[in-house]
Every structure is written in structure tokens, then in C-alpha cells.
Amino acid sequence: MTSVRSSAAASALHLIGNTRMVRLAGPSERTGCDIYGKCEFENPGGSVKDRAALFIVEDAERRGHLRPGGTVVEGTAGNTGIGIATVANAKGYRTIIVMPDNQSGEKMATLRALGAELVLVPPTKYADPEHFVHRSQRIAEERDNAVWAQQFDNVANRQAHVETTAAEIWAALDGRVDGFTCAAGTGGTIAGVGIGLKERRKDVVIALTDPHGAALYNYYAHGELKGEGSSVAEGIGQGRITGNLEGAPIDAQFRVSDEQAARAVFELNRQEGLCLGLSSGINVVGAELLARKLGPGHSVVTVLCDTGFRYLSTLWNPQWLREKGLPVPDWMDGQG
């Protein structure tokens, strides 16, 4: 049964948040739990990052760091940049986005369509001064009336999820939430939701789901920041404890391969009508692992980060899948 939203938003900014949740039938049936995905692709910028973008920009305004006619600068794998450009457009600011040049063409095209100035740089290690984060910081420092969003260490990011995402999950399930899991990029989502849910119920289990190549799985499992393997997932995976991850209440940790995640998103598309990105697949596999850890009868929530339509040239392209050594579903075979 479809729900009807009865009120009109005062502006596009009021469309951010209050996303709906959907029960994922396949994962729920396999585990004997209720597994829900929070539909963050419903945000006007198309991803969970709209929440952080709004809180970061409004925090800069409150602090007097951003004045009328100003510019917001950020280094991002794409979705945060799209969220910032969406918020900045609604508020009358310019946007400069520094992004690794190996991200999806759809993200680049979206940023250009939003009017953002796009600076592409080669992907490199965080220690390199030409890393997209450091390059964006220098650009912000060199301009008048410009603010560096600093999504990785700016805790306005996680506060967005403390105040909105966690509260929405709790309200949607009437407090019947036993576990939450997602991957970490900046760490804002998992830390903020974790803090917000544990303020309401101390024994709710918060689990990190890491892609291969990221270092946080080993950190929370063994106390050492150490990555193993690699992943093609965009926007997630972290090699350090960011400002947003400091003090994050992580109770458990899982690691998920690209192949597992790809199979999960293909199933969600064909069996449940949800076309999603690879990070959502990693999150859903993690939600199943958490559900199995908790046992039948529990409720687990994860984040459906963005739409698969943002990855038509990559994850939803049979030729790209073959090049990356990932499975190609039978129904996609022969299309590329």
C-alpha cells in the first residue's frame, strides 16, 4: 500500500531528510529478521550526503564563515559534492568540487549540470599533498569568502545523522530497532546514527560494514589500521580515524567483497524493484550478516545510499563488470 505525503515543502531544502524506509524481502526472509533500507536516494540531490551538506553549510553560516555570495569548496568522491551544490544553489552560493578522476561519469555530469566548478585530480594516497582533500583545502584558503566543507573531519556531518537520520529510524519503527549497519566513508553516517540510536537505547548494536581495501575493519576488530585487498566502490572505505569517527560507538564489524555487493544489488533490482549503487549492496550484505549475528526475530536497518542510475557507465554496464572481474547477471549479458 502506498503512503501519501500530505504537506508541501516550503523549499527544496525542506525536501532533505524524512526519507522513507522499505522492508527488504529477500534479506528478511533469509535471516528470519526484518531488514529495512532507508531510502536516501529520495533526497533532492539523490543521496544520503544531502543531509551532511545541509548541516555543514548552515553551520558555516552560523559561525560567520560563509557570507552572501560566497563559495563552498569540497573534496569528494561525488555525492557530497552533489549535495553541496544542491544546497548551495538553493542558498545562492557558488560551488567548487575537487574529485578523483576515476569516479563515475554520471557524477561528473551531474555536478556540471548543477553549475559546480569541477576540478579533477588523479587518485592518490591521503598523504600526498595532491590528494583531492588537500587540494580542495588549498583552493578554499586562496579565495575570499570561501569555506572548505571538510566533510571528513567536520562533525556537523555526523550531527546531521544524530539529529535527523537516527531520529527518523527510531520514529519509523516505533523504537523497535535492534541493529544498524553501514559502510564508512567520512564516518558521519555510522557515527551519527550510532550516537543517536544509543541515546535512545543503549543496547542497540551498531556494526561497521567495510569494503575490501579499507582499514577500519581491522581497526575495530584488532586495533590496527590495516587495509587488505581492494574495492571499486565509490565514496566509501577509509584508512584513518576521521573527526567524524572519533568516539563512534561501533560494536561489531563485517567485511564485504565487491562480488557479494554486486550480487546483492542485482537481486534487489530484479526481485524488489530497487536499482542502487554498489555501496548500498555492501550495506545490505552487512545488514544480513548483522541479522544472522543477532538471530531471528530482530529488526535491522541499513542505508540505501543512492540510485544505481548514478552508475550506468560502471556497475550497470556489462563491459565494465567484466573488466573488473565482477559477475554479469544473465539478464544483462549480451548488452555490452
Rank of each mutant, 00 (worst) to 15 (best):
G229Y: 07
N283A: 12
V193P: 03
K293F: 12
T181N: 07
A207Q: 01
D144C: 10
G239P: 02
A172G: 07
I56C: 07
T2I: 15
D330R: 13
V48P: 00
R201A: 12
P68M: 07
R20V: 10
G175V: 11
E106Q: 08
I236N: 02
G185N: 05
I250P: 00
T19N: 06
M332N: 09
D306H: 08
F309L: 15
L268Y: 06
L294P: 01
A113L: 14
L173M: 13
S231I: 05
F55S: 10
H161F: 01
A264N: 01
A221E: 12
A25D: 14
C39P: 00
E234S: 05
R143P: 06
A221G: 00
S257N: 07
L13Q: 12
S47W: 01
A252E: 15
A12E: 14
Q335L: 15
T302N: 12
A215P: 09
V205G: 03
G227R: 00
V285C: 10
A215Y: 08
L216N: 01
A252W: 12
G70V: 03
V48H: 06
E228S: 13
G308P: 05
V177Y: 04
Q260W: 07
R200S: 09
L276Q: 02
R135C: 07
D50Y: 05
D153L: 04
L15R: 14
L315H: 02
Q137T: 12
R67E: 13
T19L: 01
D128A: 10
H131W: 08
R138I: 11
E272S: 08
N283S: 11
D153F: 07
K107D: 09
A77I: 07
Y36F: 15
T95I: 08
N157Y: 09
F152D: 02
P100R: 08
L173Y: 11
E142S: 15
Y311A: 07
T110N: 10
L312T: 14
N154K: 05
V4E: 15
A172H: 15
N154G: 09
A53S: 13
K49M: 06
F152G: 00
E199Y: 03
R201V: 05
D153A: 04
R138V: 11
K226R: 15
T186K: 06
T314K: 00
D34H: 14
A149L: 09
T189H: 09
K293D: 13
I139W: 03
W316S: 01
R20T: 15
T242E: 01
E163Y: 10
F132N: 07
P327M: 04
T165N: 02
I139L: 14
T71K: 11
A207L: 10
F41W: 13
Q253I: 11
A8Q: 14
T164H: 12
A160Q: 00
P211R: 07
E40C: 06
R158L: 15
A262N: 10
L197F: 04
R67T: 10
A167P: 06
G175F: 12
A291C: 10
T80A: 08
G46N: 03
S230R: 14
M21R: 13
G70P: 01
G45W: 01
L114C: 10
M99Q: 02
A77V: 08
G192I: 03
K226M: 11
D144W: 12
S257H: 02
T80M: 13
A233D: 08
R143T: 10
L208A: 08
P318F: 04
D128H: 11
T80K: 01
D330G: 11
V256G: 08
K226V: 11
P296Q: 13
P327T: 03
V204D: 03
A207N: 07
E228C: 08
A146I: 06
